[in-house]
Design a protein around this nucleic acid. Structure first.
Lengths: 351, 351
DNA sequence: GGTGTTTTGAGGTACGCAACTCATTTTGAG
DNA sequence: CTCAAAATGAGTTGCGTACCTCAAAACACC
């Protein structure tokens, strides 16, 4: 009979701390001291215990550790106040996880604040100190905010930045996309979808002062310059993420340029952009924007928008929670899993 | 002082079974019987206990339950034998999770078998009965396989189909993409990237007998017919996922048609397709294929391929494990999280 | 050798639940 | 009303770890 089947095991040796103690020739108490970096153990003994752990690739049983520590963990999500659909989605996805959170005795609190005012944000963060095991924050990159984040980290709180990073701080992790790559992707899409026509490309952003918007524009221009010489990029319109303003600026631009073939909307204000397009009867303009919301979904289906660059808010919400939990438990982070992908969404792969 | 901040809690009431027992006016043992559907409880009492659980939206503490059950869980992944890069990736990603698995006392075994032979696959599945808490299988849709899956389910084993579904079986979950939507997405990409030129579009598939390939072709043709009337689709070439055969078939096709503007490679054999393109000097042909491998990555960077439809093997591997675990624990599945997205990968958003 | 300090051992308790036993109460059939 | 069966209560044990106390041993120093 032919051997049709081959089996291969990823087995976990079911060792316990007691086994490690025996192998290292010490007591359970000493292993415990080593494991939690508690003082009162000779360096040589520490080494012996560590070796025993290594040798058996021992992993503490997560469930037992979780049960033994008793108290529940508290996480805070510091997010922008005001009617931001993207943030509302993140909040909604956290709500969908409530059973999952409850089963793990995790308390997640949403804290809405004015994240665009550095001093207010910094104060909000400072106020959290000591009360939480982990904090996820949509942060502005500003010295005061950076200091507040570092203070939290020093106090032992795990900190992840969400959507918008503060790379200069000592935050433990960033959950969000690479905005330069997102801009490059948008550029490639606009360039390719224009299909060889020559002409001009418009950019509408919230503000070039926002780190993520600036990075997206940078990436977009990079691709335009290097790969699509037939397309010339017009100066960036700053629509402040407001519909009316975006519409007005764009209408004026359409009036001045008859040969606009592409449009990149970096931030919000999507409805205004769509209005301007339809009033100017520029249906053939390739329109690429960000995020899948009720509005962009409709525009994609109608053919008004050609593609949306999306960063899956559900994934971001869950990744933030998982990363905070892994950090709090001292578990390794599955980088591949927690990396936020840049999704290209067109009509036929709408989620 | 202005109230700048608003807080909102997703709190887990930290109730225990003891609290539920007290509220329902029964003993712990009875609650336990209800919770695990054990016999010997009057319907009326069951109702009272259930109500107490509902009322408090009680969630058993996952860690405590896990610890109490004692024995580790065993999962089996039944995958194709042979050098399939996509499957090797899945296996590699499972390897990356080994610490995660070990910390949860999960044993995952890879079982390589000839999944394309229904009787062999069915026999492999039958052989697993009773030994595993969960099975993930790359399955062929065939009556024998369907019966084997149903037998496993009846024996209490949790079963998920991976990559390729058997919808007629009673498997608990399918982890993979919607292949019709994938084909539609490929069609939309080819159509859009061709950029208004008229001409013919070639399709290379492994075999139209494979469910996933057939579905992709179906979706592709759908979009072509309805949205791109200037493009006509040529008969499908069956390359059997082999490089040489795909290259030969394609070379002959190029010889007969000078006006091919697009090409959809449904399965593997990618190197052969690329060779045929380069030898025929058809650089302007829009080439869309599937999966991000070392090869397709290179072709995308070189500009030979224009886009790849990807189904993130890492996500599939992790989702399969998470789903099996949630099923085994009786936890709800986070559908949104476990849904495999159809990723459009172009040069600038290569992962 | 004695003193004080550091290191280690031994042991206990608690976490919340699963799974079990055994005694007791309730129920229903005859 | 009797008796068996069904339903329930009360209790125990153990899972593997965290965290704690207290005593004993080892060590350093004078």
């Amino acid at each position: 009979m032919a051997q049709e089947t081959h089996s291969d095991t990823l087995t976990a040796a079911a060792l316990t701390l007691k086994d490690i103690a025996r192998q290292a020739g010490v007591s359970l108490a000493t292993v415990d001291r080593v494991l939690h970096n508690r003082p009162g153990v000779r360096p040589d003994t520490v080494r012996r215990v560590r070796e025993a752990i290594e040798r058996n690739s021992f992993q503490p049983h997560v469930a037992a550790a979780e049960l033994a520590r008793g108290r529940a963990r508290r996480f805070a999500f510091v997010m922008p106040s005001g009617p931001n659909p993207f943030m509302q989605q993140i909040q909604a996805y956290l709500g969908e996880m409530s059973a999952w959170l409850a089963a793990r005795r995790l308390n997640v609190e949403m804290i809405a604040t004015d994240v665009f005012d550095p001093s207010v944000l910094a104060a909000s963060l400072e106020a959290l100190s000591g009360d939480y095991d982990g904090v996820a924050v949509v942060a502005l990159d500003h010295p005061g905010v950076r200091a507040a984040i570092n203070d939290l980290v020093d106090a032992g709180t795990k900190v992840v930045t969400l959507v918008s990073d503060v790379p200069s701080s000592r935050r433990h992790h960033y959950v969000g996309i690479d905005n330069i790559a997102a801009g490059r992707t948008a550029g490639a899409l606009v360039g390719r979808l224009v299909g060889g026509r020559a002409g001009k490309v418009a950019i509408v952003a919230g503000s070039q002062g926002l780190r993520d918007h600036a990075e997206r524009i940078f990436g977009f221009n990079q691709v335009m310059a290097s790969e699509f010489p037939d397309l010339s990029v017009l100066p960036v319109l700053e629509g402040r993420d407001e519909d009316e303003r975006s519409e007005q600026l764009l209408a004026r631009l359409f009036g001045r340029h008859a040969d606009i073939v592409g449009l990149y909307n970096v931030g919000a204000g999507t409805q205004g952009v769509a209005n301007a397009l339809s009033k100017a009867a520029r249906e053939t303009v390739v329109f690429v924007g960000h995020d899948v919301t009720a509005l962009t979904r409709r525009l994609l289906l109608q053919g008004v928008m050609d593609a949306a660059i999306s960063q899956n808010p559900g994934h971001e919400a869950r990744a933030a929670v998982r990363v905070l939990l892994a950090l709090a438990r001292g578990e390794p982070i599955l980088r591949e899993q927690e990396k936020i992908r840049i999704d290209i969404v067109m009509r036929d792969n709408l989620p």
